[in-house]
Design a binder for these strands. Structure first.
Length: 542
RNA sequence: CGGGGCGUGGCGCAGCCUGGUAGCGCAUCUGCUUUGGGAGCAGAGGGUCGCGUGUUCGAAUCACGCCGCCCCGACCA
């Protein structure tokens, strides 16, 4: 584990040096050899690379998702898509390009996204003065925007598709890429182009739309916890953190191993703003023409960044079995000798028999790794990639009808790698249970970290400041594990809220959300001293 | 866009101050020996030193301009 200790107050005061110094020392050779003092962001980038998940692309701020990383995304897609369909939604595909005028219709939406959009202005290139450049005579009459999100173009379709209350609710989802011209980017966590799903729905009234908003928030919460083994806190964003054009924005927030919060998914109730901007109307059973209430909700490839920062350790990535592209990898111990053939045959049969088993409702995903490299190196490659179970088979196993395996969630016993020997048939029968156990173990570790690192005893700004430390721009200070603080507030808005957020910002803090589960009575507001009406989470964040 | 730093084989770096035909570790390839917990030895391949201009007999090294990347701000899933 990286930065956490399981209980007591140690995690609030103890800096991470012990964890940082040993971080990556064994497994991630590049860092070890560079002589640089590892820190969490550096650890993260190293894991992304060493686990073969993704790499930076020649295009600024964009990444290449490699097969192992994309395999994780495919699992996420498959499982989440099932849940989205189970809740009554259908998939569509809308265009990448959006006419500029569509975006311009909703004022807040414009304001929120104007600064980060990629714009297409020409439709042809031309060689001028020996340079290939946009042809001045091929200028588009109306610029096209590369979608940063699709509310406007889907809303436009809704305005044609919806006529009657019988057309409602309209429940649409799409899997797509979107582009936001972010200033600072990091692999998976924030890239200029990213993959996501975006749900867009229209409803007859506010109640139905709010029901949808919260239903999908719950889908995200359960998906994150059950499938990604990443515990989250679901809650409502403060007024200033709302999606541009939304009436209410909800999020799930996960705690990373450096104590920072990661917004892992959002669900928005958009009121009738987009319906009014785009004329999405229906006739009710009384014959009245009314505006629809719409919602939108999404999760992205950022989830993969969350998985890495939730479960990774000093040996690299640890993948929850539910999303591991290969749940069990068999490494044959080949030595360039005649008995290799027996080992391979044994391995093929083992793989085939394991594939007959099911876990998480699907056949086991098993790989016999026959690549022609040293067995020891092969094993560590799979450790770094986070394959949940790594089996080694050699002549001794073949002779004894046994397998030797390692659990990635409990790789080491002290400094030694821990392996278990089991009869072949028994292992096959046990494999589904083992995978479920690993999934549960990863969740439990992360859940313990989350639950034991939310402080509830901070009641004044002075204490908040003392806890998180003054903002000096000092890197080491920022890297220290702090966790989150849960406080009561009086939910001020407008200028007062802005001032509060500015004060928090000076401490590199932000309001993450107001958790859905609230107590029955409240302490006084930490900011205003007025009676509290709600509890909120405050943290450093990604 | 402001402030700071950095661009040298795939990766991580040295060399620059004090100009003289480019070096180290890891990785890669070949061979031999090894192999049940990240192998050893020997050899080999691979570099427009970010780009351009200038100074100079000679530029990775000095000067000027440009480009790109990283960190800190502003922005954000």
């Amino acid at each position: 584990m990286l930065l956490t200790k399981s209980d007591s107050e140690e995690q609030f005061t103890g800096p991470l040096e012990a964890g940082l110094e040993t971080c990556m020392q064994r497994a991630l050779s590049v860092l070890r050899e560079s002589g640089n003092r590892p820190n969490f962001p550096e650890w993260y980038q190293t894991v992304v690379r060493e686990a073969d998940m993704a790499e930076p692309s020649p295009v600024r701020g964009s990444m290449i998702i490699k097969p192992w990383g994309y395999g994780v995304w495919e699992q996420i897609q498959k499982i989440l898509d099932g849940r989205i369909k189970d809740t009554g939604h259908e998939n569509c595909y809308f265009p990448l390009f959006i006419p500029l005028s569509f975006i311009a219709k909703e004022a807040q939406h414009v304001e929120g996204f104007a600064k980060e959009m990629a714009v297409v202005t020409h439709h042809r290139l031309k060689m001028i003065d020996g340079k290939l450049q946009p042809d001045p005579t091929a200028k588009l009459e109306e610029p096209l925007v590369v979608r940063p999100t699709s509310e406007t173009i889907i809303g436009d379709a809704f305005s044609r598709w919806i006529r009657s209350h019988r057309d409602l609710p309209m429940l649409i989802n799409q899997w797509a890429n979107v582009v936001r011209w972010e200033m600072r980017t990091r692999l998976f966590l924030r890239t200029a182009e990213f993959l996501w799903q975006e749900g867009h729905t229209a409803h007859a009234d506010a109640e139905d739309a709010m029901g949808e908003t919260l239903k999908m928030l719950e889908v995200y919460r359960s998906f994150s916890e059950e499938t990604l083994a990443m515990p989250v806190i679901a809650g409502e964003k403060s007024a200033n953190e709302r999606f541009p054009g939304a009436d209410k924005t909800y999020s799930i927030e996960a705690m990373m191993q450096d104590g920072k919060a990661l917004q892992a998914g959002t669900s928005h109730y958009l009121g009738t703003h987009f319906a009014e901007a785009q004329n999405i109307r229906f006739q009710n059973d009384a014959g009245e023409l009314l505006f629809c209430h719409t919602t939108s909700w999404g999760v992205s490839t950022r989830l993969i960044g969350g998985v890495i920062m939730s479960h990774g350790d000093d040996d690299g990535l640890r993948l929850p079995p539910a999303i591991a592209p290969r749940q069990i990898v068999i490494v044959p111990m080949l030595r360039g000798k005649p008995e290799d053939a027996d080992v391979l045959t044994f391995g093929e049969k083992l793989a085939a028999d394991l594939r007959q088993q099911t876990a998480f409702g699907e056949r086991l995903r098993v790989l016999l790794d026959t690549k022609d490299i040293r067995s020891a190196e092969k094993r560590w490659n799979w450790v770094r990639r986070g394959a949940p179970i790594i089996i080694e088979i050699g002549p001794r196993d073949v002779a004894g009808g046994a397998v030797t395996f390692m659990r990635r969630d409990a790789l080491r016993d002290g400094d030694k790698v821990k392996s278990t020997n089991a009869p072949r048939d028994q292992f096959i029968a046990d494999a589904p249970r083992l995978l479920a156990e690993i999934q549960g173990q990863l969740f439990t570790e992360a859940k313990t970290r989350l639950d034991s690192n939310i402080r509830r005893d901070v009641t004044t700004m002075a204490e908040l400041e003392a806890f998180f430390g003054a903002s000096t721009g000092d890197d080491d200070e920022a890297a220290e594990f702090k966790g989150w603080v849960r406080v009561a507030w009086s939910r001020p808005d407008g200028h007062e809220l802005q001032q509060i957020e500015n004060a928090l910002k000076a401490l590199k803090l932000s309001i993450r959300n107001a958790p859905l589960d609230q107590p029955s009575n409240y302490a006084n507001c930490i900011f205003t001293g007025a009676p509290g009406v709600e509890e909120i989470l405050i943290a450093r964040s990604y």
